[in-house]
Amino acid sequence: MTATAISSPVTLTPAARTARRTRFLHWVGVHSLAIAAALFFVLPFVFIFLTALMSDQQALTRDLWPDSWHWENLRTVWETPGFLTWWKNTLLYAGLGTALTLLSSIPVAYALARFKFRGRNVVLMLVIATMMLPPQVVIVPMYLFWAKQLHLSGTLWPLIIPMAFTDAFSVFLLRQFLLTIPKDYVDAAKVDGCGEFKALVRIVLPMAKPAIAAVALFQFFYCWNDYFGPQIYASENPAAWTLSYGLESFKGAHHTNWNLTMAATLLVMAPVIILFFFAQKAFIEGVTLTGVKG
């Protein structure tokens, strides 16, 4: 960016010319790599999309491009018995689950970030430990508990109810963020006569909006994507299936109709992707929060 290079482009010094060429080559190199990488990330979506719109016959061939566009495949999938139920169940699970998680986790995260009490480190360690725990570790007794004691198998309640009692990852994430809010703000509010709870609601929550949005998104996605939970608790009752679980059985019922399977896949992916475009910022901030602010 030398001044000479801009004012008199004709009389470039050899050194400036080399620098410019290096910069150009660098640009070309970086962007070719980026395009190659983009192909790796995008092409699967393209193939899913193209196959979803092929005819039954063509989807079994090695063709990559549809001869004719079968948009009705999407409709066929949508009208498959059960598909709408899976949607509703998934929304219920993800929606209610997210709401309950926020309600229960925010106070806990606040206490962990703000209060000094004996055993705080033990609590924090337990939160991290449960966060890292594969759900399979406790599934055997949990299943017996829900199925045999409470007779709630065949529903999604065994997945939703626990979220009313906090989710470790959400607590951890919120606490990490709440630590960054200066203590003075809250203290000022308390001087004004606010109780701890009021201070949380009036002062802290508005400031923690980005973290809350991130936690909500993560939890929503977790529920939306969950396969193991519905497999354990809902599999025996098709009326309680979610999209992730139903999608697999859809493939089972349409053994070879890759076009319909891919159309269904597309319809399961679509909401998450659309949500991403609306909430891109919250997302990226959330991911960053998990890793960087440790």
Partner: peptide, 20 residues
């Protein structure tokens, strides 16, 4: 109710209940 495999059968019968 269709498309039910043996895993689901075993599980549901183990649990009993209204949906069994």
């Amino acid at each position: 109710v269709g498309n039910i495999n043996d895993d689901k059968i075993k599980q549901a019968l183990r649990a009993g209940g209204a949906n069994a």
